[in-house]
Simulated scan of single mutants.
Amino acid sequence: MASFQKYQTKQGQLWMFKMDTGINPETGKRQTATRRGFKTKKEAQAAAAKFEQEIENGLLINNNNLTYEEVYKQWFENHSKTIKPSTKKTIESKFNKHILPRFGKLKIKEITKMYCQKVINELAESITSVNDYKIQANQVFKYAMKMDIILKNPMEYVTIPKREEELIASIDGGEERNYWRKDEIKRFLSIAKNELTQRDHLLFHLLIYTGARKGEVLALTWDDIDFKAGTIHFGKTLFFNNGKHYFQQPKTATSKRSISLDTKTLSLLKKWRTRLKEANLANPNLFEDNNLVFTRDDGLPLRLAYPNDKLNIVIEKHKLHKISIHGLRHTHASLLFEAGASIKEVQERLGHSDIQMTMNIYTHVTDHVKEQTAQKFEKYIEL
């Protein structure tokens, strides 16, 4: 129960209330809340009733002044124990760079829906992946609700604004193509063979012919390749943190997979293995004993950014259609569909946990396949 009393100020007589809020879990002692500044006893009684209801709903007094950053630290301490080091690093970067500077110092129970929408609108002006930031910021609000720190989630109904370029149709009516067609692949591989080192040519060949992620390819060891069975196993991925490299488990169980290799790829791998053996015999102290397929000259793993940098150099020099490293994975899938592979086959080869991911690539299949659709119809109907 609350107790009410009048008190005198320079502005005149005001009302206050005091209320026992129970045991403080940190000190083990009873605690009292005091609220002042009410013009009438009726106002004080209404405020006390609302305050008492908040306490009954779990909004304890020691949670009332928690900032967003304080709640974030509580949430992340638990959440970080359930995720991979690379994911942890990515999440920390998102919060430190954009989320905490905007939310961190604010009391979490005072953050409004309008403010959340304003933040998301601002981020959308400079960040294409603004939805990722909304998802991460929302995790803290969800945790706050779960811990009874807030009653409602102000981020729940926030919408992602469309970027101007998404609202205005491009001249050709389509979106930027992040994959190569067959003729473009052939040209690139010819350039890679003639201008790049044996290692780099093989690296890009594997990315294109297996559709693997760059972290999976850079983490390959020779025992992942079964030359007799003609298969390659992807079961780990390369990760760098604070200048050190680690090999970690892939995101999902389906990412661990063994896929078949064609004879050309096997031949290139055998030639590269022979080259490494000869180099080791000539200088046995040069390389670390890590059994890696791809290394720097000192035997350490290649930087994760290395394939990106090398690809951009070749694209710029030869004025090729610009794609990303991930675009090579998209290219592999598109060409598989062109060759007649089923959606299930492509899903298993790429290690997608959700078939919807494969379907998304299928809907962006190359123009050549779209042209073939009409040809197939014509051929069938004229039989």
Rank of each mutant, 00 (worst) to 15 (best):
Q5E: 15
F17E: 00
M19G: 01
E26V: 15
T27S: 14
G37L: 14
K41Y: 00
A49I: 03
F51C: 00
E52P: 07
E54Y: 03
G58Q: 10
I61W: 02
N65Q: 06
L66G: 13
Y68T: 06
Y72R: 08
H79M: 11
K84H: 13
N96D: 12
H98M: 09
L100E: 06
P101C: 06
K105T: 13
M114V: 01
Q117A: 01
I127W: 06
V140H: 02
F141T: 02
K142T: 07
Y143P: 14
I160K: 12
G173Y: 15
E175K: 14
Y179R: 00
D183E: 05
R199A: 07
D200H: 08
F204A: 05
H205D: 01
A212V: 04
R213G: 14
K214D: 05
A229M: 04
G230D: 06
H233L: 10
K244M: 14
S255V: 06
K264D: 00
K270M: 15
K271I: 07
L276H: 14
A282E: 10
L286R: 06
L292R: 07
R296V: 02
D297N: 01
R303G: 05
P307K: 10
S324N: 02
H326M: 14
L335Y: 15
F337P: 00
N360E: 10
I361P: 07
T363V: 15
E382L: 08
